[in-house]
């Protein structure tokens, strides 16, 4: 079976259908009208975390060889988090080629991103300056994170 960017494969159709019908809790999904391989998610910050009151926009794009290659995901909302950088790139293992497997789903990616918001990984930071704040003074980090939620994620 040859996958191409123009074609929506049965897998993508099935996944889209599943996403629209059984959207996971705390998530809203919109499929781009121009490109069925382009998704926009509104992800609610996990309860109990610094980000609990915020709604974060995350863009997901399926490359032409999906699911052999991982989807590309990007935060469209500014967020103060050690594993998400200024332009919204995300440092998450399953989004990397060596940890991604074709049996994973867009849904799993979205849930992992939501989980990442609640569990910042300080050992593998993407934005070291943010990680330094998290390490040096968790109170300060919490304050900034909550401020950013108020400023950008409402």
């Amino acid at each position: 079976m040859q996958y191409s960017s123009a074609v929506v494969t049965p897998r993508i159709m099935k996944e889209t259908k599943l996403l629209l019908e059984k959207t996971p809790p705390g998530v809203r999904v919109t499929v781009s009208e121009e490109n069925p391989r382009h998704f926009l998610f509104d992800i609610q910050g996990p309860p109990g975390s610094f980000y609990e009151a915020g709604i974060f926009k995350v863009e997901i794009f399926l490359p032409s060889d999906y699911p052999m290659s991982p989807p590309k995901a990007l935060f469209r909302t500014k967020v103060f988090h050690p594993n998400i950088d200024k332009v919204g790139r995300i440092c998450l293992d399953i989004l990397k080629q060596d940890k991604w497997t074709p049996a994973l789903l867009i849904e799993k990616v979205v849930l992992s991103i939501q989980w990442l918001l609640g569990a910042p990984n300080l050992d593998d930071p993407l934005d070291t300056s943010v990680a330094d704040v998290f390490k040096a003074s968790p109170e300060h980090a919490e304050k900034t994170a909550r401020e950013w939620v108020q400023l950008y994620a409402k």
């Binding site: 060889d65 052999m68 290659s69 399953i94 080629q97 060596d98 497997t101 074709p102 049996a103 994973l104 799993k108």
Partner: peptide
Amino acid sequence: SARVNQGFQFCISTTCPQH
């Protein structure tokens, strides 16, 4: 095929596609 073409390290560490 994807694993093989991603290079040596990917190829020899290929595991079951299940996460």
